[in-house]
Design a protein around this nucleic acid. Structure first.
Lengths: 339, 339
DNA sequence: CTGCCATGATGCAACGTTGCATTCCACGTA
DNA sequence: TACGTGGAATGCAACGTTGCATCATGGCAG
């Protein structure tokens, strides 16, 4: 148990056998006599041998690392998702390396391209700034899974909820409660990413079905999906005197920001204003009032994503065409809409 | 830009030069004639060459990876911290691999021991279940920085806020508001980790200074620091009819859980109950009412931790004795104590 | 007694990269 | 002409591991 690293060579010298034999003991391969194995094992323990990952990797061509590229770790949604992915990866003996793009297009491009360094055996990426065309332009050198964003041109696997349907359900829920002036919070026309677009589509679909005309004054753009943006958008909406009796926010963080604003202005929730979020983050459950939200099955998202990677990493031969995996979601109704 | 990986060898063949020369172009070292460099660069671009990390690592003895071992990624505090660390590491051209221990002693032990695989050049660990004695027993093979927990026996660097002082300030703040029945939420006697103990110490110190006798009925144990535990502890406290006019929670999550409970029972905050948290998570700012909390300077925590690692990784020769870095904190007073 | 086989142990080579030392060449000077 | 100089390009070796092939040994059948 010394501080320095010992190699197979050192163990071999101590045990009085060849390097190859020590390697056999470590890996369990090859035939090794019982007394030899005991002797070698003792030497291994004494020196506290740990295999050198780099050398093993160089030989085997696999690193046992998978990459996770997300906009940001500090937002609850991605924090929770990353936690689940790291956990699930541990179970498969993978280690996760995380990169944050902060919604920066260049960063996303760089990380998509940089996967040729063979640092990672596979990559899970949640694109934000890049749209389908851009993503398609960056050929992968490594198994790839897209989260959320539709994979363009069958380039790679994709795992996501049905954003259109979920947004439709959320809006329909509000309509069912008698709300007629429902704001949509979270449009991001400056991004090529399609998530906001899809949620907007579900929102208008639901309105139209109910015979309600979409009102541009109720559709609010945000720069990011943070609480501050939700707060600002809600403030602007109320400031402008737009009549509104409900909010469908495209993320829970936006919803919590809007909620904060409503409190500040003395609006009763859900009496004066019903609020629905999206993402099912833990905070939503504990907000005051607890937030009604669309909860994607995060555990299934991570499981399916890792399964896709595993299939392509370990069985590249039997490769099926890229899949579009739709995971279930659920509208959890809480006190912010049904008091 | 083909899907297969090309090596220096391939580039050299295409450019009609030696492997060594290509290596020189890539690394910028050695003398290379301009026309050669142009020719080689063209070949590099055409083949989309990416250096093989494993080979480079094997040669250089460094991986460019640092490990981050935390209890859990999905909790806001660690999510925010991890985000900052990943970001700061990117600036230093390091990549972060994250492991979660979920407060499991075995997992912490395993990860402390497993650092001999030379996967990571350094390790930042936030111990939870393991106490000083245990940590001391696991000699490091790699530069190590402890977050929060005091490093035992000068084993490694440690970065943390002054928990005792911060807890003292938080409690004193409540006392200054005229509160006399201040509950302490978050004791964890089952853990060997000293953080809760230190915050408790600050709490009692402040009480004694004010001439208030600590009351065991006001000191509540929790299993974890999650919102649900705060909620349960607060519920139990009220259920038992213990007189209480303020809560000092050892984490923001606990505080938010307690807040939720207070709302449910119709208590006015801060009128009937003032609440202070610890950690300065983003949620705290947006809670209703906004939560007064001890805010550690997280950016400084990450900066100092990475600086410690960098020093030991790049200048092991000039090694100074393990440092105990105390980073500043601030009590941010918000509406949950001063309405 | 010889030859064959099974078992166990070993040696060689290669993964892709880079530090070090060497070689090659053109040019200028004695 | 011979020699020194310095820039440019190259070859060799090694990082630690493992797949493949080989070798040594001893037991047993012929």
């Amino acid at each position: 148990m010394s501080g320095v690293t010992s190699r197979l060579k050192d163990v071999a010298a101590l045990a009085g056998v060849s390097i190859r034999t020590v390697s056999n003991v470590v890996s369990g391969s090859g035939a090794v006599a019982e007394h030899t194995r005991v002797k070698v094992q003792a030497a291994l323990d004494e020196l506290g041998y740990r295999p050198n990952v780099a050398a093993r990797t160089l030989r085997a061509g696999r690193t046992g690392l998978i990459g996770l590229t997300i906009p940001e770790l500090h937002s609850p949604y991605f924090g929770e998702l990353a936690g689940l992915i790291v956990q699930a990866a541990q179970q498969r003996s993978w280690t996760v390396v995380i990169d944050q793009t902060f919604g920066d297009a260049d960063a996303e491009r760089r990380l998509l391209e940089g996967t040729g360094g063979r640092l990672v055996d596979g990559l899970i990426i949640s694109p934000w700034a890049l749209g389908p065309e851009e993503l398609a332009a960056h050929a992968q050198r490594v198994p790839l899974v897209f989260l959320g964003e539709r994979s363009p041109g069958g380039l790679a696997d994709r795992v996501a909820v049905d954003n259109v349907l979920a947004a439709d359900e959320a809006t329909t829920h509000l309509i069912g409660l008698g709300r007629r002036r429902i704001a949509a919070l979270g449009l991001q026309p400056h991004l090529h990413n399609g998530t906001a677009r899809q949620r907007h589509e579900g929102y208008t679909t639901a309105l139209r079905r109910a015979g309600l005309a979409p009102d541009p004054a109720l559709e609010r753009t945000v720069r990011t999906l943070h609480r501050a943006d939700g707060y600002a958008a809600m403030s602007a909406l109320l400031e402008e005197g737009v009549e509104v009796d409900a909010v469908f926010a495209f993320s829970d963080e936006l919803a919590l920001g809007a909620l904060h604003c409503a409190h500040q202005r003395g609006l009763r929730v859900p009496g004066d204003l019903a609020v629905v979020g999206f993402d099912g983050i833990e905070d939503a459950r504990w907000a005051h009032p607890a937030l009604t939200t669309v909860v994607p099955d995060k555990r299934q998202i991570t499981e399916r994503a890792l399964q896709c990677l595993a299939d392509r990493i370990y069985s590249p031969a039997t490769a099926v065409p890229p899949q579009d995996v739709v995971v279930p979601h659920q509208l959890e109704i809480r006190a912010s809409t049904v008091g």
